[in-house]
């Protein structure tokens, strides 16, 4: 295809991506270097029949003028990245300089908002992905043994947790895990602890969020692996059996190697999606016990009259760097393959 035609065909797509993906990334980087203006305070004298008093208040007029002149706020350099709500360099230094052993270090670092969010995001990402893939693989193997008539309805039901709106899905589970919901109440009576609830127990919150993650991510792996199972060469399976392979050995040495390329693809997609975990935190109202990087950005932006654009942008940039690190192995491999092809 000649360059001109190519450009003509792809132009709308590229324009949309440049305007609304590339430019916002630039905008985020720029914004992260600014902080919102400090409030301009003025002192006014209020006089009434009982005398005069001095009052300090925010000068809204001056603020509006300042914001119109410099909408980005004040230039702040890298201070957004280094302050307590982000990388917290000073605090980390203080913790390492003066602490009472390893446990103390961990618990104090965990109390810093950024590290709290980062730890949950990483745990969610790297636990949910393999667990959901395992669950999906098991369902795929099991559904494959079903008679044809039952397959359709089982697949239908299995797809639901994946297709559901993340916020809606997490709300549905959150209501069931509510202390007066069916699962929450059952948990209380099972453990004999009437105070057990998501709000009270950080451990339970993490577990329930991970369960939600596996529940909603499992079906994707299931669908992909199930389709992969249909293409397993039956000859190889038969000959493995003739050679005396047990059922487990067929799975281990024939089916799993056959599905390995698919598994790489699923793992990549799921890692990318799980790294942006966000809606479950809102749905389960879990922010007291578990937050994520995306939720931090959301929380900075959602403030009604004081949106912390600089702070949100700094977290966003750090998140984007995280995504790039996550993608690095894939990108490096593609780069190598591409260069080999070119040579």
């Amino acid at each position: 295809m000649p360059h001109r035609t190519f450009f003509f065909f792809i132009f709308p797509s590229i324009l949309a991506m440049v305007l609304f993906i590339t430019l916002p990334i630039v905008s985020v980087v720029v914004q992260s270097l600014f902080v919102q203006h400090e409030a301009v305070l003025i002192t006014v004298e209020n006089c009434d029949p009982f005398g005069c008093s001095e009052q300090t208040r925010v000068d809204t007029e001056a603020m509006a003028k300042l914001e119109a002149e410099q909408p980005l706020g004040q230039f702040a350099g890298f201070s957004n990245y280094l302050n307590r709500n982000h990388l917290a360099v000073d605090e980390i230094g203080a913790i390492f300089a003066d602490n009472q052993g390893f446990g103390d270090i961990v618990s104090r670092i965990f109390n810093l908002p950024f590290y709290k969010a980062l730890s949950f995001t990483l745990v969610y990402c790297f636990l949910v992905t393999p667990l959901a893939m395992g669950l999906g693989f098991a369902i795929a193997l099991a559904v494959n043994t079903l008679p044809g008539l039952l397959k359709g309805p089982t697949i239908f039901v299995s797809i639901l947790p994946m297709i559901i709106t993340p916020l809606v899905g997490s709300l549905i589970l959150a209501w069931m895990f509510n202390p007066s919901g069916i699962l929450g109440a059952s948990l209380q009576s099972l453990t004999g602890d009437p105070g057990l609830s998501l709000r009270a127990s950080p451990v339970l919150t993490w577990i329930v969020l991970l369960v939600y993650g596996v529940w909603t991510n499992g079906p994707f792996s299931f669908v992909v692996f199930y389709a992969g199972l249909q293409t397993v060469p039956q000859d190889t399976v038969e000959s493995a059996k003739i050679d005396g392979a047990s059922r487990w050995e067929v799975i281990r040495h024939v089916i799993i190697p056959h599905l390995a390329p698919l598994a790489t693809f699923v793992a990549l997609v799921q890692l990318m999606d799980n790294f942006r975990v966000f809606e479950p935190i809102v749905g389960f109202s879990a922010e007291a016990n578990a937050t994520s990087l995306s939720w931090l950005v959301f929380n900075d932006l959602v403030g009604q009259d004081s949106q912390l654009f600089g702070s949100a942008a700094a977290t966003s940039v750090i998140t984007i760097v995280g995504v790039l690190i996550l993608l690095a192995p894939v990108l490096r491999r593609t780069w190598r393959e591409f260069n080999q092809k070119a040579v």
Partner: peptide, 20 residues
Amino acid sequence: IAALIFRAMPHITLVSGYML
């Protein structure tokens, strides 16, 4: 490849770029 990287961007990080 660029599209693959864009696909991985958490949406909320882009949103914080749009708002202002």
